[in-house]
Amino acid sequence: MEVTLLGTGDTTGTPTVGCDCDTCERARSMGVERTRFSVHVESASGGTLLIDFSPDFRYQFLREDCDPPDAAVVTHIHFDHLDGLGNVYRLVDELPVYATDETDPTTGESVAQTVRGRYDYLDAVSVEPTAPFETVETAGLELTLVPVDHPPLLCYGLLVEDSETGSRLALSGDTSYAIPDRSLDVLSGADLLLADGIVPAENCEYHPMGGRHHDDAGVPRTFGDKHMTIEGARQLGDRLDATETRLVHLSHYIPADRAFAEDMAVDGARFEL
Results as ranks from 00 to 15, higher is better:
M1P: 01
T4D: 00
L5P: 04
D10L: 13
D10E: 13
D10S: 15
T11R: 09
V17Y: 10
C21I: 08
D22M: 06
S29I: 11
G31C: 09
E33D: 09
E33G: 11
R36E: 11
V39M: 01
H40C: 06
E42T: 15
S45R: 13
G46S: 07
I51Q: 04
L62F: 10
E64S: 03
C66R: 15
P68S: 05
P68T: 02
V73K: 02
V74K: 03
H78A: 15
L82Q: 02
P96W: 01
T103I: 14
E109A: 15
S110D: 12
A112P: 01
G117K: 07
Y119N: 08
D120Y: 07
A124M: 15
V127I: 11
E128S: 10
T130S: 08
E134T: 12
T135Q: 12
L154G: 00
C155L: 13
V160C: 02
D162N: 05
E164K: 15
T165L: 09
S183D: 05
S183G: 11
A190N: 03
A190P: 05
L194S: 01
I198N: 14
V199H: 01
E205M: 11
E205T: 13
H207Y: 11
H207D: 15
H207M: 13
G210S: 08
G210Y: 05
D216T: 12
P220W: 02
D225E: 14
M228W: 08
T229E: 03
R234E: 02
D241Y: 01
D241K: 08
A242C: 08
V248K: 05
S251D: 10
H252T: 15
I254P: 07
P255S: 07
A256Y: 13
A265P: 03
A265Y: 03
G268A: 12
G268I: 10
E272K: 12
